[in-house]
């Protein structure tokens, strides 16, 4: 029995695994996009760390009104930092994989 999956799943039929022409043309822009994304994410993580630091400082000075806001800021900073660490781990892993490649 022949089942045509493209008619059963119209959503799947629309997706293509092979790179299309415009995707190939945008490869250069994609590489730049990742660098930009990394830069922006690093800046965001840094901002969160600074914000958490300021919150703790304000807590020590007795200026903060809610303890849980400080804890939430700390958790956000921690989570952002751990995401950055994981991205760095994956990048380094990929780099070392390439380095170990037989030529």
């Amino acid at each position: 029995m022949n089942i045509d999956t493209s008619t059963l799943l119209p959503a799947v039929a629309g997706t293509r695994l092979t790179p299309t022409a415009d995707a190939g043309a945008g490869a250069g822009a994609g590489a730049l996009g990742f660098a930009q994304w990394l830069e922006r994410s690093l800046a965001e993580t840094n901002t969160r760390l600074i914000a958490a630091d300021q919150q703790v400082q304000r807590l020590a000075l007795g200026e903060t009104d809610n303890l849980h806001h400080v804890m939430i800021a700390l958790e956000e900073a921690k989570l952002s930092f751990q995401l950055m660490v994981q991205v760095r781990n994956k990048l380094l892993e990929a780099y070392q994989d390439i380095l170990r490649m037989q030529v």
Binding site: N66, H68, H69, I72, E75, E76, L79, S80, L83
Partner: peptide, 19 residues
């Protein structure tokens, strides 16, 4: 990161209960 929305929602609930 969209987890920040979950944190903000929980934080708003905590603020209300604290008051």
């Amino acid at each position: 990161m969209d987890y920040m929305a979950a944190f903000a929602i929980s934080g708003s609930g905590m603020s209300v209960e604290k008051l």
